[in-house]
Design a protein around this nucleic acid. Structure first.
Length: 121
DNA sequence: GGCGTGACTATGG
DNA sequence: ACCATAGCCACGC
């Protein structure tokens, strides 16, 4: 029995996770992919996000960036500056299309758990 | 089925 | 820090 991806289900899972990203934080495509059980599908997460306005407008898409904190999806917003403006309005510093202090802004529930387990080193 | 493309990521130079 | 590569996978031709 192989694992087959239902794109509609996958898309819903992506939206569910994105909606849980706290204000003032952000996460990456790869983190989302791992959270929903498909660690190798970061590109598919990106594809879902690019078309998200066709399915659900309310998702905070500006809180999803690449693994380095770069605003790779900015061109899909109403204006290229929109993504940066939305982040800065939440207190996230952005410079040269990069989120500053990325290691502190990034929201990764998996790492949050590790912080509570000193053995995780 | 092949091929190019894309809001990806890890790795190496 | 930037660029190239390779792996990854859905989608349209």
């Amino acid at each position: 029995m192989q694992k087959v991806i239902d794109i509609a289900d996958f898309r819903q899972n992506v939206f569910d996770v994105v909606c849980q990203i706290p204000i003032g934080r952000a996460t990456s495509y790869g983190v989302i992919a791992r959270l929903i059980g498909f660690p190798n599908h970061s590109r598919l997460v990106g594809q879902v996000m690019r078309n998200c306005d066709e399915f659900q407008v309310a998702v905070p898409a500006h809180r999803v960036v690449d693994s380095q904190g770069k605003l790779v999806g900015k061109s899909s917003f109403s204006s290229p500056e929109e993504m940066k403006k939305l982040l800065e309005s939440e207190g996230v510093e952005v410079e040269n299309d990069r989120i500053m202090h990325w290691n502190k802004v990034v929201w990764n529930p998996l790492n949050e758990l590790e912080k509570n387990n000193p053995d995780a080193n």
